[in-house]
Design a protein around this nucleic acid. Structure first.
Lengths: 212, 212
DNA sequence: GTATGACCAAGTTCGAAATCTGGTCAAGTG
DNA sequence: CACTTGACCAGATTTCGAACTTGGTCATAC
């Protein structure tokens, strides 16, 4: 059955590539099948509709970014700190044009799938972020004068502000420098000193994995 | 000549109202002239093109928001502090649907005028913000471990992040509470303790007025 | 000198015909 | 028999010219 999985991977690779290059509207199932070297009907053995196929492309991007975060958390538990987390996540998104396109709502790229929760539950995302911040709060790693929901809202606003600002060409310095700027901003805005251990990193990684 | 100015005001009032209600595409010069009780040709005695008319509507919104800021600065010099400034400006924008629509790039509302610098110079806006932050830096009212351009970039990212977050319905609390949350975020992220005097407030007001 | 609305060219909308494409499934393949 | 395929079709999309709308002008009216 691994041949089937390989084929699935191949189709998603092709679809992702064509999405980046031509955008949702212009990519047909025939195109994808052709470029993958299979018949159109075969695509439908994997996904019931076109929307589901592209939803799967998106879901894989999300899984990739989360996997990056989990890896980073294992390599260095300090990534569990809100400002380190922000910088890593920022880069994980910018590294993936399709993910970035979805976050900024690029209609040319994602067509009607923008903000359609295609293969991803935005409400769950929010819940997970609140839980994460709550875990940090319990360990005194974030400021305590703001309730967790407010702090999470503020953090997400800051984070998305930096993501959106990437569109502006007049950006300062390199992408890494902007990640560090985000980190410095989040650190002084929300973080409190402390050193996370592996257990905390695992807990955060587990939370993220719940986003599958 | 004041009759002419009155008429201009009337036309802009009508055009602004129709923009909010129907959006750029649906508002014709005939509509505006009709609702203003004048002939179509008369509109063209004030602006050379349709685009210029709506650009003037936008420019007036900007002037209104800046006037609010100048008033606030005079009423309380502490508004010159970055975090106070952020909260005031945030509310000044949200108070004006047309301005808010332009900031978030509402194409339905502003049509092709979104991001077209219609009657407003975005580059100048940036320059002014850098100058403002520089003034604060010179007085030790913001953190000094970041260069002014970086600090300004970070501030604007945070600010716009909170503006964009307003679109999300799942916002916490009231608009004023979110303004205070923005203020608290900016304060700990960028501000340093200090009390501005009237001279500083005037200086900042003058900078803003340069944006006409 | 000032205001107007009939007028016109350029742009937009409309509708029907032509084309394309998501999704199915009978036929083909190994 | 399990799997794959592409011809096929209905519904969606595009095309294209005709009908209509509207930005902008200017001769006329006041």
């Amino acid at each position: 059955m691994t041949a089937r999985t390989d084929r699935e991977t191949k189709i998603l690779d092709v679809a992702a590539d064509m999405l980046v290059r031509h955008g949702y509207r212009r990519v047909t199932i025939d195109d994808v099948a052709g470029a993958a070297g299979i018949g159109k009907g075969t695509v439908y053995l994997h996904w019931k509709t076109r929307e589901e196929l592209f939803g799967a492309v998106f879901a894989r991007e999300v899984r990739g970014a989360i996997a990056d975060m989990v890896t980073a958390l294992h390599a260095d538990p300090a990534v569990a700190l809100l400002h380190r987390f922000a910088a890593e996540f920022f880069l994980a998104i910018l590294r993936r044009p399709l993910l970035y396109g979805m976050v900024i709502g690029d209609v040319q790229m994602w067509g009607k799938l923008v903000g359609s929760e295609a293969g991803y539950d935005g409400g769950r995302h929010n819940t997970v972020m609140v839980s994460y911040v709550d875990v940090l709060a319990a360990r005194g790693l974030v400021r305590t004068d703001l309730a967790t929901p407010e702090l999470t809202y503020a953090f997400q606003s800051v984070f998305e502000g930096f993501i959106y600002a990437e569109r502006t060409v007049g950006s300062t310095g390199t992408r890494d420098e902007r990640a560090r700027l985000l980190s410095a901003t989040v650190e002084s805005a929300f973080s409190r000193p402390g050193t996370p251990d592996a257990a905390l990193a695992d807990e955060v990684a587990a939370l993220l994995s719940g986003l599958v």
